[in-house]
Simulated assay, not measured.
Amino acid sequence: MIRQALAAALVLAGVAGCAARHAATPAPEGLTATLDSPVDITLHWPDDAPGAAGRMVEFATQPGGPYTTLGFLPPHQTSYRHPELLPETPFYYRVRPYYGGTSGEVSVAVPADAPDLTASDPQWPNPRAVAHPGVTTAALRDDPPAAAPSGLAAKVMTADGIRFTWTDHATDEDGFLLEGKPEGAPEFTPVEVLDRDIGSCGLATLPRERSAAFRVRAFRYGALSTVAYQRTGRAPG
Rank of each mutant, 00 (worst) to 15 (best):
P50W: 10
P90Y: 07
G175R: 08
T232N: 05
P145N: 02
P28E: 08
V15L: 11
S107V: 09
D195A: 14
A5R: 15
M157I: 13
L178N: 10
D121R: 07
Y80Q: 10
G14E: 03
P90W: 10
V193D: 01
V130T: 09
I2T: 13
E179W: 06
R3S: 14
T69W: 08
A148T: 09
H44N: 14
E84H: 13
W166D: 01
P236Y: 03
P38N: 12
D195H: 03
S103R: 14
A146L: 12
H132E: 07
P63C: 06
K181G: 01
E173L: 11
R217G: 02
F214M: 06
G51N: 03
E173A: 13
E84D: 15
T137S: 12
D47I: 02
S211R: 10
D48C: 02
Y93P: 06
R96G: 03
M56N: 04
P28T: 05
L194K: 09
P145S: 05
T232I: 07
F59P: 00
L35C: 04
A49V: 06
E183Q: 10
R94A: 13
T69K: 12
G151A: 14
T89R: 14
A223L: 11
E58F: 10
Y80P: 03
T232M: 04
S200N: 01
P145I: 03
Q62F: 04
K155E: 09
T189F: 09
H169V: 11
A228V: 07
R94W: 13
G51K: 08
Y80V: 03
R163P: 03
T226N: 07
S225C: 06
G64Q: 14
S103L: 13
G175Y: 06
A19W: 04
L73C: 02
E84W: 11
R220A: 10
G100R: 02
A23H: 14
E179Q: 14
Y99E: 05
R215H: 08
A9E: 12
L73K: 00
R81C: 02
D40E: 10
L177H: 08
L224I: 00
G71P: 09
T89E: 08
R128H: 09
H44L: 12
L140D: 03
P236T: 07
T78P: 06
P75T: 05
F164E: 09
V216R: 13
G151Y: 05
D40H: 06
V15R: 11
V130P: 01
G161E: 10
S107D: 12
H82F: 15
L10K: 13
M56E: 15
Y67P: 08
R196Y: 03
E105M: 14
A139R: 15
V216T: 11
G17I: 00
K155Q: 14
T226R: 11
H44Y: 10
T25S: 15
T102P: 03
D116I: 02
R234K: 13
A129V: 00
A228W: 00
S120C: 00
L6Q: 15
T158P: 11
L43F: 06
V95I: 15
P133R: 12
P50D: 06
K155P: 00
L35E: 04
R217W: 04
